[in-house]
Design a protein around this nucleic acid. Structure first.
Lengths: 397, 397
DNA sequence: AATTAATAAATCAACTTTATTTATTTATTG
DNA sequence: CAATAAATAAATAAAGTTGATTTATTAATT
């Protein structure tokens, strides 16, 4: 589990890389399928039972796996299902948003053990760093000494080039400049020894869906996360693809032309900040969008037309996306109520049928399952993936 | 070199997989960089010199590698550069087009050793199969008995769902139906034992550029191939990505809205068949487009405006493409004269600067180097890649 | 003499095969 | 119905095999 590489075109593979790969493979299989006995793992992985046995005993003694209850009822010796030990690994996840930041402590199985939140009009580096430092101290203090030793890192989900869209939010240029010059990793290193993993916020949400949601059902898909702004993530070969510059799935930037031919982006139409703007125009307080993300019935009158337009644009976007990569599915999720999500998905699916899909295999559209907290969870996944699980699209390998 | 898997999320890795991987790695490094001594390979791959030595001797005795001339002039023992043996592997490549089909015999280093061509008004399965069967016999007869044993397969580059665009070409519906029902692999198996690898035609062109052109300089890029129709390919992590259904990079299907807001696709504007249509409208014979693909000066008057429109659409398309995957580069190639290609690339680059690229890192635009024969060469690459080289994006692994 | 390349021999790590132990269900029998 | 034998499956120990690394040696050159 030393992260030694296998599979970079410039890197040869050796035996420790082989073992590392097989360890990560078994952990990933257990992560994805839940507890399984060694015999099943061996069959599924095509490894000999003996190899699996040796690896499982090693992972168990490392405290990463826990024995489940004996499975009886079949002919033969009862099997011992092995599963991820929830207390085997802990990770911090920080979501950096335009109006709030959130810090969570997550365990190996994706359960949020504790969380802290801060809201602001716009984020400054000082703000965020103080929130993080204090939060790490507070959350760590709640943990047993034994558990603390199992903290494996800090994952941070942040919008791509935060400083660029900052003006939109109404932050002063000076703050924007501060962000641009900030070396986040170096700053964090002054108060924590934990390794830091920074990832695009929508890619983080995508990873959460991939790992803990319905993403595991698909080999590849494009994922759209709709929040104040809109972002996306890409899954290829059962792994999240972050992209060369960490900006794969920048689906908010997909072009679309307006009714009079002017150039627009998906982000200008399907984001929640557009809906927010409509509420403000109508003299309503948009705070309910962020404060009661389970129920928007009070503003349904404005939500309805937003859904229509967003769905139409998402349908067009889906075609563009599938022209680049032939995804089986486009998955849509966001920080909104379940009924809004359902409606949005259904209408996108319907609009899709009216699009010109010559030369393509049209994708299915479906809703994500994780919802609002996806970015935080995905952020916390970062360190865990890097150190214990398998990613077929680069990264640790 | 048994193609045993490593790296599928469902597959464990074993020692023979390890060796297979390292063999493919060294072959790929030699393919990409040209002949290199073992000492360099060991340093580059991070393998021990001994391991590299053993593998090189094995590949040499298999007839895949040949010793180069001793390299003197440096302190120390002179090194022996090892390179791919051109006669080590041979492969057939069949390009299936709407007006012509071409069969080539290619060697391990990408040199075309022989070729045959057929033209038609539209292709029928019978036509193509006869052409292929006769061609295989004829080309094989020219080879020495020793070389014949080194034939490793037949690669076929075909448009995606041939039967769908068939009507456009003016073929009868019955022919279209024949294609739809055809089991190409089974038919070929009746007259050849060689393994068959079928790939999208533009993806094949992309692979040719990737392997023998300037593609090796980039980690990832989108590739646009402009011929009678327009198609594309995708390279991620230094490997061609074919996509779940073999239809990744269907860039011709990228939507774009016309001046009056009607829906169009890139293929409707930037394809050569559009230019062909203009020539026909003007009462000119479009045959020169296909017959003298080095020189179109006789119809420059019509080519010029086509370049302008195509470049504009390609610039828009580039933005869409980079919103899905953050490619460093968009590479453009096609079956047209070098000066047309240069002009097209330059103007696309210029138009790109006028596009709305908020949230993106705009790509560079550059020309491919392989040109007209890219699809044939890429087709022939298929069997070679599958059996001897490394592909980090699935396929053989 | 110093340096580098290539490779043989010995060593080590990790996977597979074969064989053994253990626990259970299923079928048979008194 | 209870006892017992047979079959099956899981887990793992021991031995064998493969393949990479380490160490040492030889060769060729500046």
């Amino acid at each position: 589990m030393d992260g030694s590489k296998i599979r970079t075109l410039s890197g040869g593979a050796n035996q420790s890389g082989l073992r590392d790969y097989n360890e990560r493979l078994l952990l990933s299989m257990l992560q994805r399928n839940g507890p399984l006995p060694g015999s099943d793992l061996a069959r599924m992985a095509g490894l000999s039972p003996q190899t699996v046995s040796v690896i499982l005993r090693k992972l168990e003694s490392d405290g990463l796996l826990a024995r489940g209850a004996l499975m009886r009822g079949k002919v033969g010796k009862p099997s011992v299902p092995m599963g991820l030990d929830p207390d085997g690994v802990f990770s911090f996840g920080l979501k950096l948003g335009r109006r709030s930041a959130e810090l969570i402590l997550m365990d190996f199985t994706g359960v949020i053990r504790a969380q802290r939140r801060i809201t602001f009009f716009y984020p400054t580096p000082q703000n965020i760093l103080t929130f993080l430092r204090d939060g790490l101290v507070a959350l760590t203090e709640q943990m047993s000494v034994k558990d603390r030793a199992r903290l494996c890192g800090i994952g941070i989900a942040s919008p791509f080039e935060l400083w660029n869209w900052h003006q939109l939010v109404g932050a002063p240029a000076a703050t924007s400049q501060l962000w641009k010059e900030l070396d986040l990793r170096a700053e964090i290193a002054t108060f924590s020894d934990l390794p830091v993993f920074i990832v695009n916020d929508a890619t983080a949400a995508c990873r959460a869906e991939h790992v803990y949601g319905c993403g595991k059902e698909y080999r590849d898909y494009a994922y759209v996360f709709i929040a104040a702004f809109i972002g996306g993530g890409i899954v290829l070969n059962h792994s999240v693809f972050e992209g060369h510059q960490g900006n794969a799935g920048a689906l908010g930037s997909l072009p679309s032309s307006g009714p009079s031919g002017e150039s627009r982006q998906l982000i200008d139409i399907a984001s929640l900040h557009v809906l927010e703007g409509r509420l403000v125009e109508a003299g309503l307080d948009p705070a309910c969008l962020w404060q009661t993300p389970q129920d928007w019935s009070s503003v349904a009158r404005y939500v309805e037309p937003w859904i229509g337009q967003a769905a139409q644009e998402l349908a067009k976007a889906s075609i563009s996306i599938c022209a680049v990569i032939d995804f089986e599915t486009i998955m849509i999720d966001g920080a909104f109520p379940a009924d809004v999500k359902r409606e949005l998905v259904e209408r996108t699916q319907r609009y899709l049928q009216t699009q010109d899909a010559r030369g393509l295999v049209p994708p299915t559209i479906r809703a994500g399952e994780i919802g609002g907290k996806a970015r935080e969870i995905g952020a916390a996944c970062g360190p865990i993936f890097a150190q214990f699980l398998l990613n077929t699209n680069g990264g640790a390998f």
